[in-house]
Each structure stands twice: as C-alpha cells, then as structure tokens.
Design a protein around this nucleic acid. Structure first.
Lengths: 196, 196, 196, 196
DNA sequence: CATGAATGAGTTTTCATTCAT
DNA sequence: GATGAATGAAAACTCATTCAT
C-alpha cells in the first residue's frame, strides 16, 4: 500500500489495525500481533523499532492517505455538494471494505497515553474538519449552500452526522448497509442545506 | 452521588473516571487508582470485587443518570426545540464541570475488550439515539420540526453535531467555551430545522 | 468437644478441618474460614493468635484424643486381635461420621512447611505405630499372633492395610461402605496372623 | 528423562519435585521455582503454559513411567513373589536415589484443589492397586499365594505395608536404610503369604 | 465480642524488549 | 530475516494480620 514501507511492514500494520479493531487497544500486544502474523515476537523488531513505532506508522499512513484525498478533492472542478458526497462515498466504501479502519479513525481516545500519537490523531480530526469547512465555506460563497447559519455549524452537522452514522454502524455490529444509509443521509443533508 | 454506593465507592469511581480521562484506559491500573486515592491497592478490593466491577459501576452510574434525565425530559410540557436545547445545555454544563466525563461517554472504543462493558456502552449510545429520535419525531408530528427529511437523519445531524463539537473541545484541550459554542450550535440547528 | 477450648474455638477447628478436607490446605485461608463460620476475618483473631495457632490446635486435639484412646485400650483386658479390631472399628466409625478427619490424620504432607506442625504430625504417626506395635508384640508373647515374622513387619501390614483402605475410600469419594470393608479386612488379617 | 520434553522442561520438573518435597506444596511458587533453577519467573513461562501445566507434567511423567514399568512386569515370566519383590525393589531404589519422589507419589492430598490434578493422582493410586491385585490374583490361581483370604485384602496388606514403610522413612527423615528394610519386609510378607 | 477498613508482602501471569545464534 | 531463550517491570489480585471503633 504505502510506497515507503516494505511488504512486511504493511503486513504488520494491517494486522495491527485488525487487532485494535476486533480486540481493542488493550489486547494489541506484540505477542498477539506476532501470533496473528505467524512469526515470532522478536521478528517484529526487525521491521519496526518498537510498539510505538508501529502505532505511529498506522496513523501516518492514514494521514498521508487523507492528505492525498483532500488535495485531490480540492483540484476537482465539481459542486460543493458533489465534494461532500465524494467524502461520504469514499468513507462508506473504505469502511465497508475494511471495517477495522473505523476503530482507528473514529477512536481518538485510543492513543491517549502518548503525546506523539495523540497529536497525530488530533491532526486527522483537524484535517477532516478543515476539509469539510473549506468545502462548505466555498459552497456558501458560490450560493450553493445556505447562508442562514455559519460554516462552522454546518461542518459540525455534516461531519458529525457522518461520524455518528458510522459509529452506530460499528456499535450494531455492521447490521445495516452503510453505503445505502450514507446515500440517504447525504440526500437529506442536501435537501436541508441547498439554497432553494 | 449514587445512593446505593458508599462514599468510598463513589470516591473510587470518581478517581477512575479521572484516570481514564487524563491518562487513558491503558493507564487505568489498580496501582494508579490507589495512588490517586491515597491508599493501597489491596484496599480497593474491600470496595469493589475487581477492576471490571469498577468499570461496570462507572458505566452503570452513567446509565442511571441518563435514564433519569431522559424520563424527566419526557414528562416536561415544553416544545421539541426546548427539549433538544435542554440536552445541549445539560451536556455542556456537565462536561464543563467535569471534563473527564467526556472520555467515558464519548469513547465507545475504550471498553471493547469486555462483552459486559461494551454492551453497557452500546446501551448509552442507544438511549441517546432514542431520546433524540423520539423528541424529533414528536416535533415533526406537531409541525414544529421540518418534515422535509426523515427523523433518523435529523437525529444523526443534531446528535452528531453535538458529539463532534464536544470531541473537538476535548481534542483542543478545552481551549474554547463549550457552553457558548453549544448555544451557537443549537440556535443554528433551530434555524435550519424549524418549520417556517 | 475439647474441654480446654471454648465453643467458638471448637467451631473454628471443625470448620478448619472441613476446609482442609473438602478444598485442600491451599484453600484454607482466614477469609474462607471466616466465610464458612459466618463472621469476619478479624473475629477469628479473638479466638486464636494466628493461622498457625489454629493448625496447631487442630493437631493437638487429635493427639489428645489419640492418646486417650490408646491408654484406654491398654487398660482393657481383651485379646490382641480384639484390640486391633477395636482400632479398626473406631477409625471406620470416626471417618464415616466425619470424613474430613481422614485428610488431617492421613495427610502428613499437608503440614510440611512448618517445623512445629510437622513434628506434631510425626507424633501422630508414631503414636499409631507404637500402639499397633505394642499390641502385636504382646500378642506374639501370648502366642495369639504368629511368631513367623517380626512385630515391626506385622505392624506395617496391619496398620498399612488399614491406612490404604481408608485412602482408597477417600480417593473413590466414599463410594463404598467403610465399616463393612474394614470388618472384612480385619477378619482376613486375623486368619492370616492368628496362630493355628 | 522424558523424551517428549525439552531439557529445560525436565529441569523445571525436577526442581518442582524437589521444592514440593523439601518445602511443601505451599512453598511451590513460581518465584521459588525460578530461584532454584537460576533464572527469572518470566522465563518459566517460555517452557510451561502456567503453574498448573507444570504440576500436570510432573504427574504425567510419573504415570508414564508407572505404566511402562507395570506393562514390562506383566510380560516377564517370573513368579508372583518375584514380581512383588520387583516392585518393592524398584520403589526403594527410586526413592533412595531421589527421595523427593516420595512426596509426589504418596501425597494424594497435595493436589486436592484442582480436579485435573487430583484425577491424575487418583489414577496413579489405581494403577498401583491394579498392578498388585493382578499379580496376587494370578499368584493365587497358580497356587503360589495363599487362598485363605481374598486378593483385595492381600493387596491392601502388601501395598499398604510398603506405603507405610516409605512414609515412616520419610517422616523420620531417611534415618534408616530403605533398601534393607524393604527386603526384610518383603521376605516377611512372603513367609506369611506363600502356600506351604 | 465483632466489624470495617486498611496494609505490606506476596501470588501468578503478562508485557515490551533484547540478544546470541 | 527469523528464532528461542531470557529479562525487568508491572499487571491484577490474595493473604495474614492489625487496629480503631
């Protein structure tokens, strides 16, 4: 996946995400990780300096992906609503394909006991906020999106609704179709926010 | 706080919430807990059967408070928007007084490695969802709240926006006034949702 | 039971014997003891100096009973075989009434980690050995018991057979009638040892 | 010793047996075990899953040895008395070489607080019982051993005498020669039991 | 007499990490 | 690259005992 990482490293990152998602951060141990991958604990240390380094890489790989997506979005010449829809679609597709990602991106609390990690997590949240906010601000300027209320509040609503939907999906153990629900949510939001 | 618990037990619960909030679940150890309270690890076990029992009690006390609040809200003869405002106010006051509560209520991932605990957390999320949804559904029937979009999507937006605002507040280390922001958010939502 | 002990002390001793028998020495803790008796751990210390003191008293009460029985046996004017039968009968009745005693008397290993206790246990074994040996020696002198082999070996056989039978009874969880088996064993021994 | 176990595992088993014998089961702790072997507590867990696993292996290794000995004995074309002598000799040699074994094999009470372990101990006792009984029954059929009394009672006497002798030897802290005493006991038993 | 609360030392076990091979 | 063996620190929990009330 990530060009700067070896195959083995990517393998370890994927396994790490799975463990954190399916068993929780407290069961993310080097032993469990090595069991899942199928080689010894010592071998892990060939590929990463330590456990913290693994978690950093997990988050970094998300940050890079996110930054790429956001900047590609910026360049596209489409309406604000289409950009928001693009984010909704992208997330519901990503999570449907690999539900484990939910736990990493939407679980800011997990990385609390480490300054370096919680900074990275904060950055992810901030990048998302900014992405939504700049799309919405632009949409308001272009008179696509309502100017009745501020862009910040609109951001909270569009992004917060998305997050809550995903969290519900997670808590009910994926028993509804995220893509369908996501499309329904988006069209509802569009109805409410578009300038009539 | 909770009538059925002893003073010592409440003391332990408060300390537990603080640790989970300020240091994260991974540093919530019996040793850290006993250090914070000021007596030995063994003494904790006079008051709670084990660590899990403490976490259960933490969540149970939230569930009880939440249920009381929701049922008292139902009985009140006020408009749907006033009810929603009531939730917004209540949460921003509670969290401003005791920011540690945020980490417990909004951190569903924390209790993942234990069926019993994650069920309780799921219940809290569900209770909140239902509270919002029943208020909104009623508001739509009474023609207070827009019928342009479904109650489920409105729930996601009102509740999701609130959650995201609180999470932002948490991530920026409480550097804005939650109460003010909350009021701003509520009036924005009202503008958008009320039937004109 | 024991005159020099208070009712409470005897109660504690009986509970101790039960725990050691049914749960094993490793589960003989002050906590378990207090649970079984129905008052607090601290209360135990009103009646005995410490845990070791309880174990000492358990063994002492056995030693006293044993000494009384042996000396009363000596005074009786009955044949050697009747004396041996008396021991057999007495033990099988005692154990049938209170199986827990088996674990204390026949489990010399239990009290290993304490000089004082293991001395007492050694004394019980020795007293038993001597009792059998003096009866047998006398019986050989009186020409009741065979002189083909030495009294020491006869002691090992008569006492060893009894012990093994009781141990078998214990290990098969009391699924045969100890009294009946004991009588059968005794008559077999008599046939083999009596002078024809 | 045991082919299926590594050197380290056998080393740990030997040390375990020693501790149980010299200090008692209550002092058989992972800490004491690791001290005796000369490495850390954590290192033990490389070689055995847990403490229970160690105790199981201790007993299993005895069961395997016992089964091998018994089946090899069955195949031998020697008289019943020679077979019994063989058992007597074997045990007195084994115990003289490694007195610690006594505490394990003759201390059924030690493993009480664990179903799995106490089953294994019961099996050892049963195997011994059966071995003696089948030898004696055969001996009675061949008219080598007296038919005056039943095989069960003869088993209790021959095996019980042996056990009690060993226990005495243990309790008097090995202050007599087990081999000599054992031979004396065997010839006495032979005199008593053989068909004249 | 009995209890509730506390303690210090110890228990089994797990963890991240290191290192010789 | 990968492994087996080891370690020191820390985890949750238990134990015998004490003491104020």
């Amino acid at each position: 996946m990530n060009a700067s990482l070896t195959n083995r490293q990517n393998e370890i990152l994927r396994a790490s995400i799975d463990i954190i998602h399916y068993d929780g951060i407290q069961r993310f141990t080097i032993k469990n990780l090595s069991n899942r991958i199928g080689f010894t604990e010592a071998a892990i240390y060939r590929h990463f300096k330590n456990k913290n380094d693994i978690l950093c890489s997990v988050l970094d790989s998300f940050i890079i992906k996110l930054e790429n997506f956001v900047s590609s979005l910026k360049e596209q010449e489409i309406s604000s609503f289409d950009k928001i829809k693009s984010i909704y679609d992208r997330l519901s597709i990503t999570f449907t394909e690999k539900p484990a990602y939910v736990s990493i991106i939407f679980a800011e609390e997990i990385f609390k006991n480490n300054k370096e990690l919680s900074k990275k997590v904060g950055k992810i949240l901030e990048l998302n906020n900014k992405a939504f906010n700049s799309i919405i601000t632009k949409g308001q300027k272009n008179n696509e999106i309502t100017n009745e209320i501020g862009s910040q509040e609109l951001t909270l609503m569009t992004m917060g609704a998305l997050r809550l939907m995903v969290k519900n999906w997670l808590m009910c153990e994926f028993t509804f179709n995220l893509k369908t629900k996501s499309e329904k949510l988006f069209s509802s939001i569009k109805i409410l926010l578009e300038v009539k």
